[in-house]
């Protein structure tokens, strides 16, 4: 059992938790992920590591409440326990040879982008961050990004905060203005990452994407997380989750991500009803 040491609501649909998992905390690095199960009957879901405290033995996760499992997780309180928490899995984000980086995060993906930005800052790199949200209410981690970015641009779809528009607009402007990024690292919805790659490709700016496909074991056994990268089958759990964005087949990844859409919708409704009846 793994204790929820701290819980903080970041916005109405995004929650942060510190989980006591000393072995995972000891090894975790930016870019890696964990797998958890909320309870004995729970499904296994992957979440990218959003931070860690090696001394306290805790690992930070940030998740959006999107389906049955995240609803059950979100219903847990500080001091409660979850059944399983395993990691760190996957490969850490590569930092070698990078002096100047642009981190592009979208929505809850910013939670995962943050430790990557922090890592580059620690290493003494110049960090530009572009983070995008649908609106001001959904904005998360602004202060944290400010602290680790030499330049921070905040975008909202509706213009309710920061600049109005999508993350690719300031990215393109920066590249055209002559910013020489050694690497662009993007983490967010598949469709956003697809467009980030489409933006950087004409300029040949190396671009890493962090993929988060459906997984089960997460240890290189089931093959459910396979992607086509550079025409070859790759497994996000052991080969990734970071990949060369120019080579990823995003359309296929988006199609595969919808494999259980109908089941997820029913689970979500069932879960909503369950929590409603508990409130009564």
């Amino acid at each position: 059992m793994y204790k929820i040491v701290k819980k903080r609501v970041l916005n109405p649909t995004v929650t942060m938790m510190d989980i006591a998992a000393p072995l995972v905390a000891k090894k975790a690095q930016a870019g890696q992920f964990i797998i958890l199960r909320v309870d004995e009957e729970g499904e296994r879901i992957p979440l990218t590591v959003a931070g860690y405290d090696r001394a306290a033995g805790t690992v930070k996760i940030i998740f959006q409440v999107v389906g049955g499992t995240t609803m059950r997780l979100n219903a847990k309180k500080e001091g409660d326990y979850i059944t399983d928490f395993v990691g760190p899995l996957g490969c850490a984000t590569k930092t070698d040879g990078i002096k100047k980086v642009c981190i592009v995060g979208g929505g809850v993906g910013c939670a995962i982008a943050l430790p990557v930005a922090q890592r580059f800052k620690e290493l003494g790199c110049e960090v530009h961050s572009i983070i995008g949200f649908r609106n001001k209410d959904l904005l998360i981690l602004e202060e944290e990004f400010k602290a680790c970015s030499d330049k921070l641009t905040i975008m909202t779809d509706d213009g309710s905060y920061g600049r109005q528009g999508v993350v690719t607009a300031p990215l393109k402007e920066a590249i055209e203005a002559g910013e020489k990024f050694d690497e662009v690292i993007t983490i967010g919805p598949l469709i956003m990452m697809k467009f980030v790659v489409a933006t950087t490709k004409p300029y040949g700016v190396p671009t890493t994407v962090s993929m988060n496909p459906i997984m089960i074991d997460g240890t290189g056994m089931c093959g459910g997380c396979r992607l086509t990268v550079g025409g070859q089958t790759k497994f996000a759990c052991v080969d990734g989750p970071d990949f060369n964005g120019f080579e990823v087949d995003f359309d296929e990844a988006m199609s595969r991500a919808s494999a259980y859409a109908e089941f997820e919708r029913r689970e979500r409704e069932a879960c909503c009803n369950l929590f409603k009846s508990e409130v009564k």
Binding site: I216, D217, M221, C222, G223, G224, R226, L227, T228, T233, D249, E252, S255, R256, S258, A259
Partner: peptide
């Protein structure tokens, strides 16, 4: 890579 193609490992797991 179509939806509905499993490895036996995934399906059985």
């Amino acid at each position: 890579s179509l939806k509905g193609v499993y490895s036996a490992n995934e399906f059985l797991t």
